[in-house]
Amino acid sequence: MGIISASVWAADLNLPFLSIDTGTILFTLINLAILVFGLKHFLFKPVNDILAQRQTAVDKSLTEAEQAKAEAEATKAEYAEKLTAAKEESAEMLRKATRRAQERSDEIVAAAKAEAAAVMQQNEAELEREKRRAASELRAEVSGLAVMVAEKVVEREINPADHARLIDEFIDSVGDVQ
């Protein structure tokens, strides 16, 4: 190693300050190789494995979350659809019920009206009958009264049959006048 090494080699068993030593290079290369493979095996491999596992786990949970979200969306849409359908149905039912109630009430009202009309008619008929009966009674009474009055007036006995006929004619004429 030239000028540099000579003095130091002689001094003691130290290598020179700036030296190239075969043994050191050899051992250093071996040590470096050991260190590289040791680090690869003890540090990089386990840590990278763990990182890869974590990445996989994160990916998986992300995928799962997306899936769950999609499912939730689907369920939500389904529920919304069902809700709309139910609303429609209820509205339909309500409408139907309203219509039926309307019909029913119309029916009832019509029936009531009809009944009322019938009652009225009946009443009217009864009234008419009463009137007629009263009129005939009145007629009989009036005729008797007239006969009596006539007897008194005429003072003579007329044939009661002629009498009745005369009176009837009179009443009829009166009735026609009314």
Partner: peptide
């Protein structure tokens, strides 16, 4: 004193001298 590493032992391998120096032990 400014010197290189101490030589602990050395082997002769034909023309080569393989030194086991202080540096190598520290490397270990």
């Amino acid at each position: 004193t400014v010197t290189g590493p101490h030589v602990i032992t050395s082997w002769k391998l034909g023309p080569l001298t393989i030194n086991l120096t202080e540096t190598v032990v520290l490397e270990w």
